[in-house]
Amino acid sequence: MTDKERFVPDEGLTPASTAIPAAGELEEFTRPPRSQWLNVWDQFKHHKGAMAGGILFLVIVLTVFVGPWLWPLDATTIDIRARNQGPSLAHPFGTDQLGRDTFARMMAGGRTSVSVGIAAMLLALGLGSLIGVLAGFFRRLDGPLMRLTDLFLALPLLPLLLVMMLLFREPLNAAFGPEQGIFILIVTAIGVTSWMPTARIVRGDVLALKEREFVLAARSIGTTNTKLIARHILPNVLSPIMVSATLGIATAIITESALSFLGLGFPPDYPTWGRLLFDATDYLQQYPERVFWPGMAISLTVLSVNYLGDGLRDALDPRIRGR
């Protein structure tokens, strides 16, 4: 920005987003103060993308968690006479090479994939944001935490997972049972190996933010570090975190499938979307619908979370509230 340029009056270049509220809304200023979260919710409600994403996400979650109770066929029931069938009334999504109902498998798979995806994403996001904020905000922690990040970035994923399996599978199985145990192990494995980009990104933003005027101002009136981080830093790094979240879900679902087909994941009779997609890839030419369903389910889940994230971000940004 150069100082030499003379001040020129606004020529209507300002986009609508920065326009001052019209006079008709004056009433708004005289009303009693509302809670901040109510405002956020108001904004969120009017965000078309967010509502669409939210509803879609709810539908997906309901289908995969409640659906299996309503659908008569089980994901593991083998009906060998009905194998490789196309969509029909009895099997709306068709059947696979062993005659298992694809719709039931999609729902069962979704339950695993959605839970793993969200849990692993939250873990990675939590870890990443925490380390990113700490490293960016406290100069003394920056060195050690970022070297730790470098270390984790450098570790080869596959041997790391093998070691985790070796060390923790049996104890977790004993403590939580085989299914819960492997779930915890997989979520931890994915979370622990994918927080680093979030941490680097958040730290980069925090480094820039903490030199901004409003942070200086807040500090000068004696705001504590905790408050400073919670009220001023975190809301301002929300948008990269949201992007990381959406990308993180997709990565977690796909990584889970990679683990499963390497023999490091769930038992083989446990369908997941990633695994259904992988198994169907060989049959791409014969039965294209088999890749379509899991591919679409993963994409839709990621899209819905993305729009949710967009809406949340917009709703939390006071500058564009009321648009």
């Binding site: 593991t76 090479q97 062993l98 093998l162 023999g263 490091l264 038992p267 083989p268 009779d269």
Partner: peptide, 28 residues
């Protein structure tokens, strides 16, 4: 893995419960 699923089903029919496990070939 298809064989495992089929055999598990047959063994269920004779009252035997089966837990399946698949292991990376380079470890197995």
């Amino acid at each position: 893995q298809d064989f495992q699923a089929l055999i598990k089903e047959w063994w269920r029919q004779i009252g035997v419960e089966t837990e399946l496990r698949n292991i990376n070939a380079s470890v197995f």
